[in-house]
Structure formats: structure tokens, C-alpha cells
Amino acid sequence: MKNAVEVCPTTALGMIEKGALLVDVREADEVAEASFDVPEVILIPYSEFEERFVEIPVDREVVVACNVGERSLMATYFLMNHGYEKVANMQYGIVRWAEKGFPMKGELKRKSGGCCCGSPSGSSNSSGSCC
């Protein structure tokens, strides 16, 4: 399996400014709290990604992002497995994006990772806490 392309938020911002599509895979409550303020972003929560990834155009350059870059890396590999060739993961996610002072809406409170099971970090479910 090929290594995923990973870019820092600065490079990601440059790609977005040149026309790349940002795909935010954080869950709805995370997005409601703070989000990327860029002209074009698709919101597909990680927990729905398997069903909804087809909404992402195959022929566009795509940057995938989450809170710290873990869920988005898995989503990036998932897209690669489905034939997407112009996809990159944003390392360190919106947390680093915010630290850099890049355009945002809202205020970021969750500074830790998200959950591989699709839940935001620190949330709990019937099977116990996650990540």
C-alpha cells in the first residue's frame, strides 16, 4: 500500500487557496464548536464517511482534515483504496490550524484527538470511553 500524502496546515492552506477542496471529517458537534473558515469545505463526519465518501469528487485535489490528523489519515487511506489519487491528509488537524492563526469560525476547545470509532474525543459511549 502506498504511503498517504501528508501536508502541514500551512501547505494545506496554500493548496486550498489554489483550488483544493477541504473535507472536514469531524463530527457535527465538533464542527458546531469551531470550523475551518474557507470558501469551499465539505463536511462528512467520520462516522458517516463509509456511506458518504462518494460525495467527494474523484477528479478534484482534496485535503482531508480532522482535529489532530488521525481520523483524517484513515479517511485519506480509505479514499486512496477507492481510487482517489489527488488526496492529502492535513497533519495535526484543526488544532494546529488554529495555533497558526489560520481562518476559523468559532473557538476551538477540544485540543486532543478524536476517536477512531467516530466519536469526538473525550466522549463516552455504552462500551466505555474512547481514544
Binding site: M1, E50, A75, Y77, F78, G118
Partner: peptide, 28 residues
């Protein structure tokens, strides 16, 4: 390792693989 996990194309973890076949994902 995420790259090794994604070789099975599994988004919902944890997942159980038996003899290279994914038998369960996203739950215990």
C-alpha cells in the same frame, strides 16, 4: 499502525481479523 489498518480498508475500529478476513468492525 494506521497504514497497516487501512490495508484492510476498515474505518470503524476496533476490528477483528481472522486469517486475513475482517470478521467484525466498529464494536466489541
Amino acid at each position: 499502525d494506521i497504514q497497516r489498518i487501512m490495508a484492510y480498508n476498515v474505518l470503524a475500529t476496533p476490528a477483528l481479523v481472522v486469517d486475513e478476513e475482517v470478521r467484525c468492525k466498529g464494536r466489541v
